[in-house]
Design a protein around this nucleic acid. Sequence first.
DNA 1: GGTGATATTGATAATGGTTATCATTATTGT
DNA 2: ACAATAATGATAACCATTATCAATATCACC
Lengths: 149, 149
Amino acid sequence: MPRTDMIDIKEAQEVFIDCLKSRGLRYTSQREAILETFLSSMKHLTVEELYALVKEKNMDIGYATVARNMKFLVECGIADEIKVGNKRTRFERHYGRQHHDHLICLKCGAFIEVHDSNIEMLQNKLAEANDFVPQRHKLEIYGICRECR
Amino acid sequence: MPRTDMIDIKEAQEVFIDCLKSRGLRYTSQREAILETFLSSMKHLTVEELYALVKEKNMDIGYATVARNMKFLVECGIADEIKVGNKRTRFERHYGRQHHDHLICLKCGAFIEVHDSNIEMLQNKLAEANDFVPQRHKLEIYGICRECR
DNA sequence: GGTGATATTGATAATGGTTATCATTATTGT
DNA sequence: ACAATAATGATAACCATTATCAATATCACC
Ligand SMILES: [Mn+2]
Ligand SMILES: [Mn+2]
Ligand SMILES: [Zn+2]
Ligand SMILES: [Zn+2]
């Protein structure tokens, strides 16, 4: 694991601990394991996948605990939810990252991260032109990735 | 109801009938009621809402029949599915309309239809730059609409 | 360190939307 | 009319998510 990731995890840990404290909540060993496993993976994980990863580290943990705490990570700004269709919700790191959108492969399910500030700018103009105050958006392009062709 | 909508419904009816025929399926009174009610509404409807509308026209019909046939309408290119978060799937007319995206109000749930060909063009370039063959996309901007401010 | 208050955990049940099942009814072609 | 096939609709099954709650762990305070 590269050093920068270690530093990121330490920082995120502090953010998480502060966020929990401000709500009268505690930083438990389960929460530490979930946070570290999540941030180390660098993938777009489901609760089930993360649950399996935490258990691999000979950590005895319950599915509900993982699910519950991923919600807290989202509320604390450390994780983001990704909902595609009716499939299981996935989570990705949010803290320390910039906004991005996704190209999603219909064959292998890969998430390719992209960003285009021109598109973002035009989106804001589009909202403004409709007297609409934008708060967030979701752009997903579905198709076939390089490897699947 | 404006005349153009009547014509639209007649056209869509033919498309639906042809699509059903090509699959060895039949055009029933329930399917007619679902199609006409759906196309007349001009809204982004859930199965439940459409089910209620069909029943209002003193049509005795089952929920499963509405749900099943909305799937057929999608497969026949007459309707489009809209899935936002984990909320119930909504349907809108597809046949005879051009592609558009949505501004979605977080307060009242309104769907404002928008289109920006520059954004669409940039999306295609973005996909191409990543060696990705786009097939479809979903752009949703969440915020507060004019009426809710 | 002991104590009472409060939060956490994890097994399991409940929920809610969607889809499948299947006996009954309707339609079709001959 | 008959046999074949599809459609319907009540209900059950499914599945991801969320709620419940008894048992356990942690905290603040003395
Ligand atoms: Mn991502
Ligand atoms: Mn629309
Ligand atoms: Zn792929
Ligand atoms: Zn609104």
